Structures are given as C-alpha cells and as structure tokens.
Amino acid sequence: MADSSHGYVRDRRGCCHWGPHGAAGLLLRQGPRFLLQRRSWRVHHGRTWSIPGGALKSGESPWDGARREFAEELGSVPAVCPVRTFVDDHGGWAYHTVVADVVELFGRHGGDGEGAAHRWCTPAEIDSLRLHPGFAAAWPQLIAGLGMAGR
C-alpha cells in the first residue's frame, strides 16, 4: 500500500506544501529551553534550524504524527507532557506544532539523517539562528502563546 503522507499539495493561497494531510512537529521544552534540530543539507531548506516534524498520514492525529516524526528523525521520544498545540492554517493545509514538556532526560539515539544536529536553545538563542522559513514565521506566535515573549 502506498504511503498517503507523501506528495505535495497546494493551499488556497497557491503555496505548495509537503504532505496532503498536513504536517506536525514536536517542540520540546525543558525549563526555559527548547530542543531544535539543524536540518541536513540534503533536505528542503537544509542547514536551517527547526523542530523535528513532517507530513501526517491519513487519519493520524497531530500528536501521534509529531511523536512519530520526532522518533524517525531523532531516534526516540522521551517521556513528555503535552502543553499545547499551535495550528498554522494555510487554507486547505495546516502545520501543527505540538509543544510538550520533557519529564525525563533526553539523549539522541540515532535517527533517519534528516537532522544534522540538535541542541537546547533559549528563546534569545533561537532568535539568532538561521531558521527554517516556516518555523521562523511561526516562532513569534509560539513564544508569545507560551507566555515567554521577551525572554
């Protein structure tokens, strides 16, 4: 059976996105820091910083999809407590950023190579990084929605 999460879709604004059923990513928070990954040079918008994430499968919830993508890209998902899901609706296509607090220490255990590196960053450090364009556009709303703007 073909993977229904593969392929591009055009939103109502005419922009093209990967994942006919939308996409989701997992933004882990540990105190005042967030876990980001640097995208491999081999992927779209390579060498930028973002969160592990990708296309949702048909019928998959954003929570399940974000955790699946995180595990694929970083090798495992630590024990987490969901905080909030932010939806960036593009009109016919949406990206779901699932924010979760880490409740145990996290160590990377492999992954599929989409991420070249990962690191914990404060909001100020994130502001200074070369971010994936979609994450860069959503970041101010994410940090404000979490009550951490200006930190």
Score class of each variant (00 low, 15 high):
residue 62 P to A: 02
residue 63 W to S: 04
residue 98 V to G: 09
residue 151 R to D: 01
residue 108 R to P: 14
residue 62 P to H: 02
residue 19 G to K: 14
residue 46 G to R: 10
residue 81 C to H: 00
residue 112 D to R: 08
residue 138 A to M: 07
residue 143 I to R: 03
residue 37 Q to F: 05
residue 136 A to P: 10
residue 8 Y to R: 11
residue 145 G to L: 08
residue 103 V to C: 09
residue 77 V to T: 12
residue 91 G to I: 13
residue 47 R to F: 07
residue 82 P to W: 10
residue 66 A to F: 09
residue 128 S to G: 11
residue 48 T to I: 14
residue 48 T to G: 15
residue 47 R to H: 11
residue 48 T to C: 15
residue 141 Q to A: 15
residue 22 G to T: 10
residue 142 L to V: 00
residue 99 V to N: 03
residue 58 S to V: 11
residue 109 H to Q: 15
residue 80 V to Y: 05
residue 109 H to G: 10
residue 119 R to C: 02
residue 135 F to V: 01
residue 78 P to T: 00
residue 8 Y to D: 09
residue 85 T to K: 01
residue 108 R to Q: 13
residue 73 E to T: 14
residue 126 I to K: 00
residue 53 G to R: 06
residue 60 E to R: 07
residue 141 Q to T: 10
residue 89 D to I: 15
residue 112 D to M: 13
residue 93 W to M: 06
residue 101 D to M: 00
residue 98 V to N: 10
residue 29 R to D: 10
residue 111 G to Q: 01
residue 105 L to W: 12
residue 105 L to P: 14
residue 125 E to P: 02
residue 84 R to H: 01
residue 58 S to D: 14
residue 36 L to V: 06
residue 23 A to G: 13
residue 10 R to Q: 12
residue 83 V to H: 00
residue 35 L to G: 02
residue 36 L to G: 09
residue 83 V to C: 09
residue 147 G to V: 04
residue 103 V to S: 05
residue 113 G to I: 03
residue 83 V to N: 05
residue 93 W to C: 08
residue 24 A to M: 00
residue 11 D to L: 02
residue 8 Y to P: 02
